[in-house]
Design a protein around this nucleic acid. Structure first.
Lengths: 232, 232
DNA sequence: TCAAAAGTGTTCGCTATACACCCATGG
DNA sequence: CCATGGGTGTATAGCGAACACTTTTGA
């Protein structure tokens, strides 16, 4: 390395700081995660979470959103910081601290997610070997999402604007790894009154047409005010 | 500053990384937090959360435990990472990233917590002005603790080994800012069977003697296995 | 006309809540 | 003997899990 280039000097050693992003998407049945293939050593050609170094003038959330935009073309997606990874030797080159976020995006709106050579969606139960400690980061992101969904209706970030109750149920089942009775789930959602029925219908399989619903944020905010919690 | 001392050089600027610790204690009625008075500028004499720079050979949890030990003398207390603070100008001197933990300790066991000149317990609703963005860190720690207590029986870390049901109720009420019916809380706890009654009794006020209980971890682990969750 | 999926309603058991009651203790 | 707080029991309402029934559509 060229010594001329090492112009940032400190009295004590400083770690590098990166933001990595676990980007979740939902295909109607399963949860997916967007991975990129590394082009350089170490772990060259290995799949990894998108991420990069934090710039000195941006906070971590801004950095995560920047990474997300670069990878998916999406602006202002829902992101949430869930853990910071600090094991001293997690990167073989140097000490790296990684502030990890997860992002909830609509797969349909992601550009280049499946045609770009270096980025691909993987179902959560079929993820390849990952670089560094990214498998741990991914598992922890799943756990954090599972816990968050007990307090906030984040699932809607993963669905298109209009969706069927069946799709919503599939999503909750995928995140929580449980099964609900179709009719009880339907009734419960109707009872909450946080879904707004649109005039549109859709025919997902070739059977009876299903109504499309929209998430009613105002109604939810109102209920939340009164101490309501979305439980599962 | 002496240039000779600046021997750690990098191609790109690196932030400093610290771990700060929100140390919670419970006095039987209210939640308290342990603060230290700063001896140096900036914010000299201001109260602040204990913390310090992360060493290059330790991970963040180890660093937080080290800070905790230095401040309270406690070994192996319960700690949990809850957020990393990254605003570019949160420290006026240089860019500092702070990985924040909260710790749950028994106030009785803390050495130097109230006689040391530079460290003191403050009730959560009577905290003085804090240095840097430590008020935000504190508020966020409270929120994280509130949410965690829905999933794990962390409250017991704050109580002495033996405690009355009344004390346990006070703790839950303090953390969640709610009121429970005394008798329902008692029945519910007895029904869970995660409290083990000891032979000892105590006379907190000068009225009837109350049984002392102990948290039964085995029983809890067993119930948790079966999908049980401690709800409030 | 049959299978599959959507939408609606009903029953039953559990649990959270509200609250009554007795006991022990100190003043 | 009375006020205060601890320990136990009970009734009721509401919610969740299980499940029956009807409707719509494509093959």
């Amino acid at each position: 390395m060229d010594n001329e280039e090492l112009k940032y000097c400190y009295k004590y050693p400083h770690p590098s700081v990166t933001t990595d992003c676990v980007i979740f998407g939902f295909d109607g049945t399963r949860l997916n995660v967007l991975l990129v293939q590394r082009g350089v050593e170490p772990f060259k050609c290995c799949w990894a979470l998108p991420g990069g170094f934090l710039r000195m003038d941006e906070d971590a959330a801004t950095g995560a959103l920047r990474e997300l935009r670069e990878e998916t073309g999406l602006e202002g997606a829902y992101i949430r910081q869930f853990h910071t990874f600090t094991a001293p030797r997690r990167d073989p080159r140097e000490r790296v601290i990684t502030i990890a976020y997860y992002a909830l995006v609509r797969m349909q709106e992601v550009r280049g997610g499946d045609d770009a050579a270096d980025a691909r969606w993987f179902p959560l139960d079929d993820v390849p070997q990952l670089a560094f400690d990214h498998d741990q980061i991914l598992r922890r992101a799943e756990k954090a999402l599972r816990e968050q969904i007990h307090f906030e209706p984040v699932g809607f970030e993963l669905l298109p604007e209009k969706f069927t109750v069946k799709q919503l149920q599939n999503l909750y089942e995928a995140i929580l790894s449980v099964r609900f009775d179709r009719r009880n789930f339907y009734n419960k959602m109707m009872h909450f009154e946080i879904l707004e029925r649109t005039a549109d219908r859709v025919n997902p399989s070739n059977k009876k047409e299903a109504f499309l619903f929209r998430f009613n944020e105002e109604k939810y905010a109102e209920l939340k005010q009164k101490g309501f919690r979305l439980e599962f």
